[in-house]
Amino acid sequence: QEELVKAFKALLKEEKFSSQGEIVAALQEQGFDNINQSKVSRMLTKFGAVRTRNAKMEMVYCLPAELGV
């Protein structure tokens, strides 16, 4: 569980995922086979993730800066 949270936060820091499906796929690539869209959705809510525009003006998920991840 701890490893999943770390990987999840690291992915969001990249600010390149525009959908929950993309986050699920990226986590599965890292070996988290039991991850699915509903789990990702709950984690996004739990950590207060928001959708914002990145440098390329794409809408992407990211974590609020005050979490200091």
Rank of each mutant, 00 (worst) to 15 (best):
Q1H: 10
Q1R: 11
Q1E: 14
Q1S: 11
Q1K: 11
E2K: 09
E2T: 09
E3G: 10
E3P: 10
E3V: 10
E3A: 13
L4F: 06
L4K: 00
L4P: 01
L4E: 04
V5N: 13
K6W: 09
K6N: 12
K6H: 10
K6M: 10
A7M: 06
A7R: 05
A7T: 07
A7Q: 06
F8S: 00
F8D: 00
F8I: 05
K9F: 14
K9C: 12
K9H: 11
K9I: 15
K9Q: 09
K9E: 08
K9S: 06
K9T: 09
A10T: 08
A10H: 09
L11V: 05
L11I: 09
L11K: 01
L11N: 00
L11W: 03
L12I: 07
L12F: 05
L12G: 00
K13V: 09
K13Q: 10
E14P: 02
E14L: 13
E14F: 06
E14V: 06
E14H: 06
E15G: 07
E15W: 06
E15S: 07
K16V: 08
K16R: 13
K16N: 06
F17C: 12
F17G: 02
F17L: 06
F17M: 12
F17K: 03
F17R: 03
S18P: 04
S18Q: 15
S18W: 06
S18M: 10
S18F: 06
S19C: 04
S19L: 08
S19H: 11
S19G: 06
S19E: 08
Q20H: 09
Q20K: 14
Q20W: 06
G21T: 12
E22N: 06
E22R: 06
E22S: 11
E22A: 10
E22T: 07
E22D: 10
I23R: 00
I23D: 00
I23K: 00
I23M: 07
I23C: 03
I23N: 01
I23G: 01
V24M: 07
V24H: 04
V24P: 00
A25S: 13
A25M: 11
A25H: 10
A25I: 12
A25P: 00
A25N: 10
A26Q: 09
A26I: 06
A26K: 08
A26G: 03
L27H: 00
L27Q: 00
L27M: 06
Q28V: 12
Q28L: 12
Q28D: 03
Q28M: 13
E29H: 10
E29M: 10
E29L: 10
Q30D: 04
Q30E: 06
Q30T: 05
G31C: 03
G31A: 03
G31Q: 03
F32S: 00
F32C: 02
F32N: 01
D33L: 14
D33F: 13
D33V: 13
N34Y: 13
N34H: 14
N34I: 06
N34A: 09
I35D: 01
I35E: 01
I35N: 00
I35S: 02
N36M: 04
N36Y: 06
N36A: 05
N36H: 06
Q37A: 12
Q37E: 14
Q37K: 15
Q37V: 14
Q37M: 12
S38R: 15
K39M: 15
K39R: 12
K39Q: 13
V40Q: 00
V40D: 01
V40W: 01
S41H: 11
S41C: 05
S41R: 14
S41M: 09
S41K: 15
R42H: 14
R42V: 12
M43C: 02
M43S: 00
M43V: 01
M43I: 04
M43E: 01
M43A: 02
M43Q: 01
L44Q: 01
L44R: 00
L44K: 00
L44V: 05
L44I: 09
L44C: 03
T45P: 03
T45D: 13
T45S: 11
K46Q: 14
K46N: 11
K46E: 15
K46S: 12
F47D: 01
F47V: 11
F47G: 02
G48P: 01
G48I: 02
A49S: 04
V50K: 14
V50H: 07
R51V: 13
R51S: 05
R51D: 02
R51P: 04
R51N: 03
T52F: 07
T52R: 15
T52A: 14
T52K: 15
T52Q: 15
R53A: 13
R53F: 15
R53C: 08
R53M: 15
N54F: 02
N54H: 02
A55N: 13
A55G: 09
A55H: 12
A55R: 07
K56Q: 13
K56T: 06
K56G: 07
K56F: 09
K56W: 06
K56C: 02
K56P: 02
K56D: 12
M57Y: 11
M57L: 12
M57C: 03
M57W: 09
M57P: 02
E58K: 08
M59N: 05
M59S: 05
M59R: 03
V60I: 06
V60Y: 04
V60N: 02
Y61T: 02
Y61K: 01
Y61N: 01
C62P: 01
C62I: 10
C62E: 03
L63N: 02
L63I: 08
L63R: 01
L63D: 03
L63A: 03
P64F: 04
P64S: 05
P64H: 04
P64T: 05
A65D: 13
A65S: 13
A65V: 11
A65W: 11
A65L: 14
A65N: 13
E66L: 05
E66N: 09
E66F: 08
E66M: 06
E66T: 05
E66H: 11
E66R: 06
L67I: 14
L67Q: 15
G68Y: 03
G68Q: 11
G68S: 09
G68T: 06
V69A: 13
V69L: 07
V69E: 15
